[in-house]
Computed example of a mutant assay.
Amino acid sequence: MDELRRFRRALVAWAAGGAGAGAAAAVARELAGGGVRMIVLVEGSSDQAALEALATRNGRDLGAEGVAVVPLGGATNIGRFLDVCGPPGLGLPLAGLCDIGEERHFRRHLERVGLGSGLTQAGLETLGFHVCDADLEDELIRALGAEGVQEVIEAQGEVRPFRTFQGQPAQRERPVEHQLRRFMGTHSGRKALYAQAMVAHLDLERVPRPLERLLTHV
Rank of each mutant, 00 (worst) to 15 (best):
T56H: 12
G63M: 05
L110R: 00
E102N: 13
T126K: 12
L54C: 05
G101H: 14
C98K: 01
R57M: 08
N58K: 15
G73Q: 10
T56N: 01
R107D: 02
Q48G: 00
E125G: 13
E65N: 03
A55L: 03
T76C: 02
L124Y: 08
V84F: 10
G128M: 11
T126H: 08
G123M: 09
R104K: 14
L82T: 02
R57V: 00
T126C: 03
A49N: 09
Q48M: 10
R112G: 10
A95S: 14
V67E: 02
G116E: 02
F81L: 11
A53Q: 15
G128D: 13
L119C: 09
G91R: 03
G128R: 06
C85P: 10
H109S: 12
L90I: 11
D83K: 07
G101A: 13
T120Q: 09
G118I: 11
E65V: 00
L115N: 07
L124T: 06
G118M: 11
Q121K: 13
S117Q: 14
F106K: 01
G63A: 12
G89E: 06
D83A: 15
P88H: 01
A49Q: 11
D99C: 07
R108D: 15
G66L: 05
S117R: 14
D99N: 14
R104A: 15
V131R: 03
L90Q: 06
V67R: 01
C98Q: 07
L82E: 06
L72D: 12
E125K: 09
G79W: 01
R80P: 03
E125P: 06
L115E: 14
L127P: 04
G86L: 06
V131C: 11
V70Y: 09
H105L: 12
G73D: 12
E125H: 04
G118K: 05
G123S: 10
T126Q: 14
G114R: 04
G116R: 01
L54I: 00
V131N: 08
G89H: 04
L127T: 02
E103Q: 15
L90N: 08
G74T: 09
R104T: 08
H105I: 00
A50F: 06
D61A: 13
G73F: 09
L90V: 11
G66K: 02
R112I: 09
L97D: 05
R60C: 00
T120G: 13
A75S: 15
E111P: 06
C85K: 08
A55V: 01
E111F: 04
R112A: 15
T56A: 14
T56P: 00
A55C: 01
H105N: 14
R107K: 13
E125A: 15
G74C: 09
P71K: 10
D83N: 11
G116V: 07
I100E: 15
L72V: 05
P87K: 03
N58F: 02
A122G: 15
E103I: 00
A49H: 08
L119D: 06
L90D: 07
E52V: 12
A49C: 05
T120A: 11
D99T: 08
G86K: 00
R104V: 08
G59L: 08
H109N: 15
R112N: 13
G128H: 11
T126S: 10
G114T: 07
L72K: 06
V67K: 01
L110V: 06
G91Y: 04
G74H: 11
E125W: 08
D99M: 07
V131K: 05
